[in-house]
């Protein structure tokens, strides 16, 4: 079925200098999506340049999956504008699908087909040339050549994800959208998976990956933190941490972790959370924070100031949001 009218064209760039290293692979503004009464994504906008790995973080139900699906054309935005790979995000979803790899949150290859059959199917629906060669290369890359006839459903979680990644990148996409690709995968498999993602980015692929893992967020070139359908923070991990204006203290020593309960709610302490036996206490007002912890700054606890982690920042962001919401409701 031929699409009516002229074939979709990439929107011409105003400045030729945009191409190359600083080319905007994703450039969208004001995306909105509602499901019934739920406004899942609000005025979402993001710019991602070629070759970058952009981490998508946020609590469950933040709208990460919905956003990825909209960028890919699996969901039609209610409103908004912009381009993905130069194609109109609202109109050219078929063109976008051809050039973007998408890996679903849930394993979505055919469990009752073999590894090789799944890859062959993917190669065929993308009408790839040199199909055998590409499938063979993917099998070799995965190290699954010997197990090519094994049913995909019998693979372990880590292998399933690697196979899904191989399938999503088989057609050589310029942009890869990964929806929580490593959920429920053991640490070693996660590491292998991320090495592959970095390998792909090094070869010029742009990657947008949603995750809940902070260590993964730190492996991204840049991150976007989303909650309640809005982008709350954006930039490299360092930029996000700097922008938060947080001051964080560590307390180590016997019973440190149990202090969290007492410190919470104290003026100046915006967040107190135990990490194992270590306590993290954060706040934006240094003086107030130091005053708050002063009574506890004694032996046997050892206090030290430390750089806030992404996790500290994110918890802070959620608290801010909840406080703002509570204030709005009270008003």
């Amino acid at each position: 079925m031929a699409a009516p009218g002229p074939a979709p064209r990439r929107v011409e760039k105003a400045e030729p200098s945009d191409r190359g290293a600083h080319e905007k692979v994703i450039d969208v503004r004001g995306l909105n999506k509602s499901f019934g009464a739920l406004h899942a994504v609000k005025d979402f906008g993001i710019v991602v340049e070629r070759g970058r790995i952009c981490g998508f973080l946020g609590p469950n139900g933040a709208g990460k999956t919905t956003t990825l699906r909209m960028l890919f054309g699996l969901l039609r935005p209610d409103s908004g504008e912009g381009t993905v790979l130069g194609f109109d995000v609202l109109k050219d979803s078929r063109e976008i699908k051809r050039r973007v790899g998408y890996m679903t949150q849930r394993f979505s290859l055919y469990e009752d087909l073999s590894i090789e059959q799944n890859l062959t199917f993917t190669a065929r629906v993308h009408e790839l040339d040199r199909r055998r060669e590409r499938v063979q290369a993917a099998l070799d890359g995965l190290g699954l050549t010997a197990r090519r006839a094994q049913l995909a459903g019998t693979l372990s979680g880590g292998w399933k994800q690697r196979l899904a990644l191989a399938a999503a990148t088989l057609h050589g996409p310029e942009l890869l959208l990964l929806d929580e690709p490593t959920a429920g995968v053991d640490p070693e498999a996660r590491r292998t998976f991320w090495d592959e993602i970095h390998g792909l980015a090094a070869r010029g692929m742009t990657v947008l990956v949603s995750t809940h893992y902070m260590d993964e967020a730190e492996r991204c070139h840049e991150i976007a933190y989303i909650a309640g359908g809005r982008t709350l923070a954006r930039g490299t991990a360092d930029e996000v941490i700097d922008a938060s204006g947080l001051v964080t203290f560590h307390a180590e020593g016997p019973g440190a972790d149990r202090l969290a309960r007492e410190l919470r709610g104290t003026p100046g302490v915006e967040m107190a959370a135990p990490f194992g036996t270590v306590l993290h206490v954060s706040g934006r007002d240094r003086a107030a924070l130091e005053a708050a912890i002063a009574p506890y700054r004694k032996s046997p606890l050892v206090w030290s100031e430390t750089r806030p982690t992404l996790e500290d920042v994110f918890i802070q962001l959620i608290h801010d949001r909840e406080a703002a919401k509570a204030k709005a409701e009270a008003a």
């Binding site: 079925m1 078929r94 979505s108």
Partner: peptide, 16 residues
């Protein structure tokens, strides 16, 4: 039910 619909839709394959 198995979730494979999403990856099928993720391909350029047409309804027909």
């Amino acid at each position: 039910e198995r979730g494979t619909m999403e990856s099928l839709l993720a391909t350029p394959v047409l309804p027909i």
